[in-house]
Design a protein around this nucleic acid. Sequence first.
DNA 1: TAATTGACTGAGTAATCACTCAGTATGACA
DNA 2: TGTCATACTGAGTGATTACTCAGTCAATTA
Lengths: 179, 179
Amino acid sequence: MQSAIRLFCSLGFQNTSTTKITKDAGVGTGTLFLYFKSKDELVNQLYLEIKKEMQVYHQIFSRPSLSFKEQLNAFWVDVVQWGLDNPDKFKFMMQFKNSPYISKFTMDEVTEDHQFVQNVMMQAMAEGEIINQPFDFLMTLFTSQFSSIIQYLTIEKRTNQEHLIQVSFDVLWNGIKKN
Amino acid sequence: MQSAIRLFCSLGFQNTSTTKITKDAGVGTGTLFLYFKSKDELVNQLYLEIKKEMQVYHQIFSRPSLSFKEQLNAFWVDVVQWGLDNPDKFKFMMQFKNSPYISKFTMDEVTEDHQFVQNVMMQAMAEGEIINQPFDFLMTLFTSQFSSIIQYLTIEKRTNQEHLIQVSFDVLWNGIKKN
DNA sequence: TAATTGACTGAGTAATCACTCAGTATGACA
DNA sequence: TGTCATACTGAGTGATTACTCAGTCAATTA
């Protein structure tokens, strides 16, 4: 699975043959199909695995004592950090999202993955702290800025990473807050 | 080329065989290779074609008489509209960007494509109108929000599209402006 | 020791791919 | 009518793919 993630990231799904994966992993061609019925199943398993890992990571940040801004800020900083610590896994998830490879799983992804952000933003909107706009519209802004900042910091290695993570959140918050 | 764009968008580069393209276009298998030496060349030609079309579109917005905000705003509204009017072409460009298909062209893309935005933002930063941060960092925020809003409005057909385009720009500007 | 199990192998297979090329169809000119 | 030129065709080719399966090997059990 490690070999698969690495190769998928550098070559893409379709350019990575099962033979390449098994060679990289140092096993026989057939071994892969003892553990996964097909290449499709491998991709799905990888997706579900990483998704679960991310969700465990997400659950930490349910602290209703903090303000909406603080909750989102803490979430932002920590999950961006996860993306930077696991660039291959993150890149894999991005590729999976924009791929016509599998469709049935992509449906529930948004609803499950960003449950936490959804809840906080809905409350913040209800209490008038952020602008009153279609909810999925705001989520789009959030997730796009969120993933692009990870991509940027992964490519451009900078010394002031933590500062830029904070700035990226401030840009978002200043954009969506009221006034 | 129309068939190619349409199929590339719905199936992806690798899942679209040259036979599918020729069948969709209603010509023989070999005909494609009279006009393009290879599938690679077809993809490249498509990319260059659309890029040129976008650049022509961009050049309109060089009006130094307007303020920085107004210049960026006008650019934003009109180019988002282009993306909405040409969803397939836009999706193709997005796919091309995140694809390991071709590498030599992707280099010059950023520098050429967003020349206008670069110039305006550099001046705005120099005059203290927007926050003082690494330039490519701000460009990342700009382009990500820019492309995600097109994707969003393409999928979610809404009656208040123009309003949401304006809101999305305001969110960005409020995020990056000083104070 | 002999038998059984189970993880693993890699040459082989059918399907699919990008691409070719001998040949057809159409039309212009002599 | 005959001759060339051009645009186009699609069965065919070699390469590559996901996937199979008869068989190897080491460890465990009788």
